[in-house]
Amino acid sequence: MIWVDTVLQGVLLGGLYALFALGLSLVFGIMRLVNLAHGDLIVLAAYLILVLTTLLDLGPFMAALVALPVMFAVGWTLQRLVLNRVLGTDILPPLLVTFGLSVVLQNALQEGFSADSRRIPAGWLETASVPIGPISLGVMPLLTFASAILVTLALQWLFYRTALGRAFRATSDDPATASLMGVKPDAIFAKATGIAMIVVTIAALYLGTRANFDPTTGPARLIYAFEAVIIGGLGSLWGTLAGGIIIGVAQTVGAQINPEWQILAGHIAFLAVLLIRPRGLFPRAFD
């Protein structure tokens, strides 16, 4: 029974990793940009939610709601002012600029909030759980997982059912031709990063309420996100969700065997998938 419990907890943890990964997947899918500051932006959003809860005396969910447009604006501005300038065939400038951004963000947060680890208070929800037979599942993990599924559905709908999604896909396929059709790639990219930051804020809500975080938490989240994207296969949103779940299950199973192996087990699972299926489990894009 302990193993069923372990795997279930892993699946729910995977929901959190999928939330980390979906924003990354979205941005890469549209503009082939790997944002090395993705993890730090999640941590930034977590601090923003934390500040809003204390400043406006809001619950975590309301605070996240207020944070959503702010983070959208952050993403939009970042893309407009910085990232659009470095997109191109050369992969070096965007990587180095986002890496620099990651270091700047970490240290700015350290300066502003000190290195102490913090947590977004969620009241009774923190400890609430639902008994299912002999197993009890936390309400927060369940909410996280449900949110991951909802975000995946929403992005799927956005991509394949809306005009904006069509513009996303067109720009992704061929920015030059798309711009002949009246789509402005720069504007599309800015919107895409803004939407990615909305996903980041949702991820930050659960990161911050479920565990402690500090200014240096970001890079590890980036790595989990990245592993989930690669395991799932580039360009597949449901694949990303599956990738997150695989990392989550590997981590909880690893931790069950030896607590020190939790993180390592997740990485090993990633390398194993890379070994057997270099293009991921559900590859869609070819690039």
Partner: peptide
């Protein structure tokens, strides 16, 4: 391409 960077990090 860019995923190589994070791969080495892993």
């Amino acid at each position: 391409g860019p995923y190589f960077a994070i791969g080495t990090w892993v």
